[in-house]
Design a protein around this nucleic acid. Structure first.
Lengths: 156, 156
DNA sequence: ACAACCTAGTTGATGGTTCAACTATTTCCG
DNA sequence: CGGAAATAGTTGAACCATCAACTAGGTTGT
């Protein structure tokens, strides 16, 4: 139990800006999508990942991984999307435990509409108001975070 | 209704890294705090803001603003923290509608314990694995986001 | 002084997320 | 082969956040 290595003033300032800013940024994304398209951010993410998959279909586990959601959460969210007619689920022939989620035509259309507004919001509140070099830095930072998280716990 | 200004490949890559990375980063913070100290991230944030306030007390509205939470959410969360004995609420004498939230001794102690672990997690999964200059860029970026959000909607 | 309005904060219902338990299938390996 | 262990996905309960409605006290203007 050693002394904690506290952040210095500059680190603290930057970390705090990130905490506050990222919470409020995702809040506005959420609100915007919900108001204009009746979609939550996590529903939107699912549609995005499906739209990029071959044949616009993915196994539930892979979709959960891509969308950074737990399997349970995906099951519930998928049920909701299914009842909205944006997603369909059907059984995997080769693995009888497996389930494919796939995007319906309505899902494709809804995503296209939502994405047009969403990209505008992302620009308006982030991309267009910062230096391109700083966006690249953000990319590097969170790529490193993802890599670190994959490596699992322990601090080498 | 003009054509959307889609992100280019590099912007898309960086934005996606941020979306995925930030979700997963706050997930691990949340899990860590919950497992080791029984606190959610938003409870933790409330304790932090209170601990920094003069006399470790703040009016509810101000606390809500500082912690980036809605007033309603703060009421509920505060009720939970109160039942854990970490926060107390009492009436404001000068404005009879008002309520002060203040940190109890137990709250101070709980925060101190939690903060020691929390800073370690923040370092392990973010600060210590990136370039200092990139952290500064993150700080600039989200400071700009906060400024933009304060300005309100509309894109000048 | 009083009516209209605004601000502080809470409450309860609703809906989404998490967690643990469960079924069903597949894989591993003696 | 056959049983143990691992994997895919779902379910329901408990928990937390959001939203609209509400109480109560303050502010403004005439």
């Amino acid at each position: 139990m050693s002394e904690p290595r506290w952040l210095d003033a500059a680190q603290q300032r930057d970390w705090r800006a990130y905490v506050d800013g990222s919470v409020r940024l995702s809040e506005i994304m959420e609100r915007d999508l919900k108001a204009k398209h009746g979609l939550s951010l996590s529903e939107y993410e699912i549609l995005v990942r499906l739209s990029e998959a071959p044949d616009r279909r993915l196994r539930m586990a892979e979709l959960a991984e891509n969308a950074s959601q737990s399997r349970s959460r995906l099951s519930h969210t998928c049920a909701r999307l299914e009842s909205k007619g944006l997603v369909e689920r059907d059984n995997c022939p080769s693995d009888k435990r497996g389930v494919f989620a796939n995007l319906t035509e309505a899902g494709i259309a809804a995503l296209e509409r939502a994405a047009r507004d969403h990209v505008e919001t992302v620009r308006e509140y982030l991309i267009d108001i910062i230096e391109p070099a700083d966006l690249e830095a953000v990319g590097r930072v969170f790529t490193a975070v993802l890599k670190r998280l994959e490596a699992g716990p322990g601090r080498p």
